[in-house]
Design a protein around this nucleic acid. Structure first.
Lengths: 256, 256
DNA sequence: GCTTGTGAAGACATTCACAGCG
DNA sequence: CGCTGTGAATGTCTTCACAAGC
């Protein structure tokens, strides 16, 4: 979910629903895999299975992009890859900075899925002077002092915050002041940002707590509507809902 | 979002909407902070601001849990902390295993937010024999061969997958066969699981792509409905939607 | 009087089911 | 004949607005 802003302008960017946007990357990943296997076309049924959604939803999603399929046949894989990439803005280069090079920041820096999607790690930034100059994932870490200069020099508009919670808002403010307009926040804090700045949050502890909720329901608790920590009997299917992409709210990971 | 299962039974566990469940951890975090500052009560307005949602939503959410507030006054912080913790199942101990101790797995192992929420890292598991015995976050890494034994010995029901994509489904199958019924997946793959098993996924690359989509809309593109990569003019507010908690689909991070 | 709790309204999302078309 | 694309139906979530209650 978008944090910091209380309500959104509902200005669903040129017609594509948020829930659909959140699924496009999934489709893209499945399509890329098909493309690598040189599969020329795919039906909504097959692609939906590969992406883990149902076919009606997938067709509806694609209908927002335009009519890119052929009735009786399916979708052209290469063409769809291109169209979705373009729609997501992945045909252009997105320089990204990662702030907070702890365990998580290093993991992100080493993440291979960046380059293939148009994202380029322009810089790694950390507040610890001892980190400065150290290479992580082949990139020398730079000190926080240089943050503004780095943003300006590289035309960075997307920032990733992987700092401890206490430093996140401060880092966020500096990123925004320097011109960043999209932030991916891994710190377990609600960030406050001005209008026009987009924040997405990933929070491991939240995901685990949601799992625990469902897990708890599986064992015991039927009739008992109160704190009765009763039975051990396994109950049937409780399946977690989608992330609602948007707020889908949803997930988290962060350093200590 | 829950992957692997195509549709959910809509068995909204005893009445609490998924979207609400996904927000409970947020409220809990905000409440914990208030508790530490010894704040005795809080109004829906204040708490909502701290959690980054609007107050009507928060009150509706709490109404699903019961009537824990006092009109004209607000909510008792300590009491709410307890009620939400209980509802999420955090008053019990949840042993968790993390499989795949690369950069990300190590980051997760070092994550401090576990213990305070009832989660306990029971074991770290990796397929690399060279890792076996090495201490990460004070816990000796064990080899994949011991996975089943570890699950059984510790009564683990929640597993975290932080392996490369190629190994994820296999690890998932073994976890499930050994008795794990909730999985948090950081690998960029759609996992297939039997009914009754809950999967949540966190995917960094997806989050970045969603940000890129909105970022692209901010700069240029008004009338042009096709590939016209036209203007540079900055457009007004595009705010990301919530994560939709449930599927809230939502987000991602993983190792190479 | 101030704030909760909640019906009712509205927005959004998913699913159905079939017409349309290659 | 098969599969896409989409209106209509259904379901879920959010927001409004106010009655109820301390």
């Amino acid at each position: 979910m978008a944090t910091g802003r209380t309500h959104r302008p509902a200005t669903r960017s040129r017609g594509i629903p948020e829930a659909t946007v959140a699924r496009l990357p999934l489709y893209l990943r499945a399509l890329t895999a098909l493309s690598e296997r040189s599969v020329p076309t795919v039906s909504s049924e097959e692609l939906a299975a590969a992406a883990g959604v149902n076919s009606a939803k997938l067709r509806k999603d694609f209908s927002y992009l335009g009519s890119y399929g052929t009735r009786g046949v399916g979708y052209d894989v290469e063409y769809l890859v291109y169209q979705i990439s373009r729609e997501l803005g992945l045909t252009q280069d997105w320089p990204v900075v990662i702030v907070g090079i702890g365990n998580l920041g290093a993991a992100l820096a080493n993440y291979g899925g960046f380059a293939s999607r148009g994202f380029r790690v322009a810089a790694l930034i950390d507040a610890d002077p001892a980190m400065a100059g150290k290479p992580v994932a082949g990139i020398a870490v730079q000190h926080t002092d240089e943050l503004e200069q780095i943003i300006a020099d590289n035309g960075v508009s997307i920032g990733v915050i992987a700092t401890p919670a206490g430093a996140a808002q401060q880092v966020c403010d500096r990123l925004v002041a320097a011109g960043v307009t999209s932030i991916l926040n891994f710190a377990p804090t609600v960030l406050t940002v001005p209008d026009g700045v987009d924040v997405r949050k990933v929070d491991l502890s939240i995901e685990l707590q949601i799992l625990a909720f469902h897990e708890q329901r599986k064992a015991g608790e039927d009739a008992a509507h109160d704190g009765g920590r009763t039975a051990p009997a396994v109950r049937a299917a409780t399946v977690a809902a989608d992330r609602k992409g948007p707020d889908g709210d949803v997930p988290a990971v962060m350093p200590a």
